[in-house]
Simulated scan of single mutants.
Amino acid sequence: MGLRATVVVCTTSFLLGCLFTHWIADALTLWKPPAADADLWTAARYYDILETMPRWAQGILGAVVSAAGATVVWSFGDAQADNIMFDGGSICLFGATLAMYVYNVLPNIIKNFDSLPPHEPDAVVPQGIRTAVLDLASNHLMCSVALTGVLALQAGRQWVERSARQDAEEVEELVDEK
């Protein structure tokens, strides 16, 4: 596995791991419909904490996203037929994830969880927060599936490259024998 593939796989895995940490909140709402108010409040408190994460941590996350995106685009620059298919698909999936996060997830967190209203344990969740929590859970799931697709495409690329090398070696051995 080359350096570029290693960077893509490692950074994508890191981002996927970051999304998996949201499972704490998302599992409470996404997989148990209808979501109970207590579960929605728990998820809302989680997103409230996430919104107040230190800016340096957000910077690290941004750097990892930048490294992953730049490396996927760099790999696409080889313009080999097998790379175009696998890296083109990776770019589409990575770009879709980035767009989903920038245009849906981040604005949702900033707008709805900047300051969570105080509530009693048995209080009914306001419709705006209920919708925001459910949307975040759905968006995180879509981003996770897309990043898993990036990993699958990169694995496919490595498999094709290894098979091509093995085929070339076999042909070379046959030519040497004759």
Rank of each mutant, 00 (worst) to 15 (best):
S115I: 04
W23A: 15
L93T: 07
V125P: 03
G59Y: 04
A63D: 06
Y46E: 01
A44F: 00
V175L: 15
A152C: 11
A67G: 09
Y46V: 03
C92H: 04
G62H: 05
L136K: 01
H140S: 07
Y47F: 00
V72H: 01
S115L: 08
T6E: 06
L151A: 02
V73F: 03
G89M: 15
A36M: 04
Q127T: 07
Q166H: 10
D26G: 07
D135N: 05
C92M: 09
A35W: 00
C143M: 13
Y47A: 01
V105Y: 02
L61D: 06
L174G: 08
A5S: 14
P54D: 04
E120G: 13
I24C: 13
G69Q: 06
W159C: 05
S163W: 11
A137Y: 02
S13P: 04
M85E: 14
S90Y: 06
A96N: 10
F20Q: 11
L116R: 00
V171M: 11
D39S: 03
T12H: 02
V65F: 05
L61K: 12
I91S: 06
H22Q: 10
L136F: 00
N139V: 07
E120Q: 15
L106F: 13
T97A: 11
V145Y: 08
D135M: 07
Y103H: 14
S66P: 05
T148V: 15
I91Y: 05
V9C: 06
E51M: 01
T21C: 10
